[in-house]
Amino acid sequence: MRTATRCVLATLLMSLVGVGGLLAAESYEQKRRELMDEIRRDVQRTSREIGRAQLDDRVMEVMAKVPRHEFVPADQRPYAYRNRPLPIGYGQTISQPYIVAIMTDLLGLEEGDRVLEVGTGSGYQAAVLAAMKTDVYTMEIIPELGREVAERLERLGYKEINTRIGDGYYGWQEQAPFDGIIVTAAAAHIPPPLVRQLKPGGRMIIPVGGPFRVQQLTLVEKAATGEVTTRQLLPVAFVPLTGDH
């Protein structure tokens, strides 16, 4: 009898855990949908600064699928779908989803494009890029973080992402040139080797600012002629003079 009771209790418990897991997954999905709605609204309001009324549908679809909660430490999961940067340890942060969406969109990638990320961080940006069906090469300078992320990406099924631990300044020569490059590691200047590894017509994005504060986005464009220009974009609809909207 006692054994039977225990079995029933255990089964009940197991099913509760299972239901709990399902509920959690569902609630994460719900939160993710809400977050995407928020980003969509924000983008519309920032349309003038980022030069488009809405982001590429594919970017929005992908961001609605990639489970951001899997890329943050356990104690940060309750906040995973808030539109804010979160700490991930090692003095690093996972970027604000709104900024990730804009950076991904600004790269203007097509399916099958080759993209390099310098500064893997949590791996979230790489996952988003991979979900856009691009070939992703990502480099991280902090070995512990790089190993953690490689395991995480593997576990989450992003097996096609190529990870490497090392100095991103010289890019990934064997796989160059790239259609897009994203440099999330702090840089006092734009690394010339990375510019060289950019295909003509390719784009490089560098978020500028401190932790928790992406101040501006530097977009480096290489024309078909090889001429390089940079643009400083505010990720936000902000006109510095009053009465000038």
């Binding site: 920032t46 101040q215 936000v236 902000f238």
Partner: peptide, 14 residues
């Protein structure tokens, strides 16, 4: 007020 309203859209660093 404007900057706080823009917080979700990358206004924090301002």
């Amino acid at each position: 007020p404007e900057l706080l309203e823009l917080r979700g859209r990358g206004g924090t660093p301002l």
